[in-house]
């Protein structure tokens, strides 16, 4: 087993929402992330999946301390980020980077690609001329030295995503959070970017949190997978166990909803059709948050919150009546 790089324990993030309701102002709490715990080993990839609004991005932003968690702890290389002073946090932050979904929005259009890539080095006060480092990084992500002088609009989506990755790699991070890094890309281009992530990891040994709603891509790249529903992890474990033997009804339904690119398989599959949409995180259901859409729900599901429990195939899931 690799030593743990990251330990997240009972992470909670509530957002306060001010609703203007005519003359009256109401305050509402969005429970974006509730009691999320997981760990991540060195050189490991954890996939974070779940539907829109399930809290994936919020988890990522809390881990990087881009936003302050409401409660819970994030330990990185054994240090509790919440107890660090500003300067200490800044020094640690260079080891944690994020790559966003939208390769178009995440680069400054007025900066050359070279300037964008060296910016983190300058911000972190790394001394010297960064030209060689920029070229090394460009080549690492499959671009070339002469790209450094060009501007983002001269690049395609896949190339811009590579520039974003080069920028994230500038400070030799130990952890990169990839938030929907290939969702905006065409499938034929996605494959190259996914290969790039795999190659960089085997060469440089960093860990990834790979956030995506595309379950097939996550299956391909992740060692372990966490499935989120309405702010909570409902199932977490080895990729193979979760995909081959899902034990939480939501995981099972989610996997069965994913269309597979093979007509014969599609015709042979039995699908679990969930009813309705995900409820609002402002007022999540009591007990098990999935119970309003779960075909197995009983009275106990509304009263008692199911705890994450180890299942025979090795993963953990939070359900009173797990699938076998």
């Amino acid at each position: 087993m690799s030593a743990e790089l990251l330990n997240v324990t009972n992470l909670v993030k509530n957002f306060e929402l001010r609703v203007n309701n005519g003359a009256r102002r109401k305050k509402r709490i969005v429970q974006a992330v509730t009691n999320v715990s997981f760990s991540l080993g060195k050189g490991e990839t954890l996939g974070l999946v779940g539907e829109s609004g399930s809290g994936k991005t919020t988890v990522g932003r809390c881990v990087l301390r881009l936003i302050e968690p409401t409660s819970g702890s994030v330990e990185f290389e054994g240090q509790d980020l919440g107890s660090l002073k500003f300067e200490e946090l800044r020094a640690l932050r260079r080891k944690m980077q994020i790559v966003f979904q939208d390769p178009f929005a995440s680069l400054d259009p007025k900066m050359t690609v070279g300037a964008s890539i060296s910016e983190p080095l300058i911000v972190q006060g790394v001394p010297g001329d960064h030209t060689d480092k920029v070229i090394e990084l460009l080549e690492l992500v499959g671009l070339s030295a002469d790209h450094a002088q060009r501007f983002p609009h001269e690049f395609s989506g896949g190339q811009r995503q590579r520039i974003g990755v080069a920028r994230a790699l500038a400070l030799n991070p130990a952890l990169i959070i990839l938030d929907e890094p290939v969702s905006a890309l065409d499938v034929s281009i996605q494959a190259g970017v996914v290969n790039l992530f795999e190659d960089l990891q085997s060469r440089l040994g960093m860990s990834y949190i790979f956030i995506a709603h595309d379950l097939s891509v996550v299956r391909h790249i992740a060692d372990r997978v966490a499935v989120m529903y309405l702010g909570k992890i409902v199932e977490i474990g080895e990729q193979e166990a979760v995909y081959e033997h899902p034990t939480h009804p939501y995981t099972k339904a989610l996997l069965s909803a994913v269309p597979l690119p093979d007509p014969k398989t599609e015709r042979a599959r039995t699908r679990i059709m969930l009813e309705g949409d995900v409820p609002s995180p402002v007022n999540p259901p009591s007990g098990c948050r999935f119970r309003t859409r779960c075909w197995k729900a009983q009275d106990v599901c509304a009263q008692e919150e199911p705890m994450l429990t180890v299942r025979p195939s090795g993963q953990m899931s939070a359900c009173h009546f797990p699938e076998s």
Partner: peptide, 17 residues
Amino acid sequence: SLPRPGKQRLKPITGFP
């Protein structure tokens, strides 16, 4: 180019649209 269970390595289409 699509990921499929058991596939070791993805095969992109080279170049750009």
